[in-house]
């Protein structure tokens, strides 16, 4: 995949995350589309750091538009992408359980880093409250990332169900 093509995915996610998705939220919760894309792109594409680059760019844009301070979102996304790249070296990308495990760890890492940076910036937000509010968005995001995985794995690994394919 070319950089500009992956960038379009991130652009669409950025635009609908704060508009259309909020209008059709479930129980006030929405999946974090930027985080989902950062995780899935970092997990599936080994050589091209799409998640890292676009995570930084759109994370920065996100904070400029909606953040109380600029920086927590891109830093958390970049660190999450780096963690996924590190973890994928020890996992099988064709195994969906590996993807779920790495996604869950990445989400928790993202929320903790984001919370830590917001606290450093002086935003009063209890960790317990922040994590409790993140449970359902995380579940929601896992559903979205599973759908993305099922679509994208076919593009990344041709005939992935065929064990004899080389």
């Amino acid at each position: 995949m070319r950089y500009w093509k992956s960038g379009i995915f991130f652009l669409i996610a950025f635009l609908i995350q704060t508009s259309l998705l909020n209008m059709i939220n479930i129980g006030g919760c929405t999946p974090n589309l930027l985080l989902c894309l950062v995780v899935i792109f970092s997990f599936l594409y080994e050589k091209e750091p799409y998640g890292l680059v676009w995570g930084a760019v759109f994370g920065l844009l996100y904070d400029i538009c909606f953040g109380v301070v600029i920086g927590p979102t891109p830093i958390a996304l970049v660190l999450t992408a780096a963690a996924v790249v590190f973890m994928r070296a020890y996992s099988n990308i064709e195994n969906i359980v590996s993807m779920w495990t790495i996604s869950a760890i990445s989400f928790v890492l993202y929320y903790i880093v984001n919370w830590g940076l917001l606290s450093l910036a002086g935003i009063p937000l209890g960790l317990g409250y922040a994590l409790s509010k993140s449970v359902w968005p995380m579940v929601y995001s896992i559903v979205v990332i599973t759908l993305l995985y099922m679509i994208m794995i076919k593009k990344v690994v041709k005939h992935h169900n065929d064990r004899y394919f080389i």
Binding site: I64, I70, G71, G122
Partner: peptide, 29 residues
Amino acid sequence: LLSLLVVLALIFVLSTVSGFGGNFLTDFI
């Protein structure tokens, strides 16, 4: 990765210290 993190950390520190206010770039975006 390290360069990117350093740049983002600088932006974060500047934004926190100076207070995130409106300027031409943020208004434009």
